[in-house]
């Protein structure tokens, strides 16, 4: 099963190498890894998408925790969390095709971020499945290149029955 694991790590030399080494050395799956600074410049957050049975996932979490520069490991899979991925999709596109493409772009609340007489580049964000669906819908038009970020995620803060929760959901 697919798991979303969030890591808080020290922003130090070689941290990313240690983590990717762990996955390759122990033969764990690493579907995507997404890294960026946090509110504190000394710390980075990494979001790792991985898969495996319960015993493997338990080992992955324990092994990540063993790394000296890793401060906190959270498996977000079974917690309510927001996750987002961004993809840039460059299509072959002549003037005659533009309208049909724009329709799809609107449905996915995506954006056109670059245009030329022969191409169109679309930016789409959302959960992994939404991005996947958008790419699938654009496939028939002729995709030239794709760049994807991998998933990044944060835990949701509502506790289920609180009165603010529906508002939070609506704006999310």
């Amino acid at each position: 099963m697919r798991h979303t694991i969030s890591l808080l790590v020290e922003n130090k030399f070689g941290v990313l190498a240690r983590i990717s080494n762990l996955f390759s050395g122990k033969g764990y799956n690493l579907d995507s890894i997404c890294v960026g600074e946090t509110e504190t410049p000394e710390l980075s957050r990494m979001t790792i998408m991985t898969s495996g049975d319960d015993m493997v996932i338990e080992q992955i979490i324990k092994q990540l925790n063993r790394l000296i520069n890793v401060i906190k490991v959270t498996d977000l899979t079974f917690d309510e969390h927001v996750n987002r991925e961004l993809a840039l999709i460059k299509l072959s596109c002549t003037a005659s095709m533009r309208n049909s493409i724009i329709q799809i772009v609107e449905i996915f609340q995506a954006k056109i971020v670059d245009i030329s007489p022969r191409t169109l580049t679309i930016e789409v964000t959302g959960g992994h499945k939404k991005v996947e669906a958008c790419i699938n819908m654009l496939q028939p038009f002729g995709i030239r290149e794709i760049a994807r970020t991998g998933t990044t995620a944060l835990k949701r803060e509502y506790s289920g029955s609180s009165p603010d929760w529906s508002a939070a959901r609506a704006s999310a």
């Binding site: 030399f13 070689g14 190498a17 240690r18 080494n21 050395g25 000296i68």
Partner: peptide, 16 residues
């Protein structure tokens, strides 16, 4: 040597 020994050390440091 840091790269070579990464999988066989508990931790390692390059002092800059």
């Amino acid at each position: 040597i840091i790269g070579i020994t990464r999988p066989i050390t508990k931790h390692s440091y390059l002092v800059r």
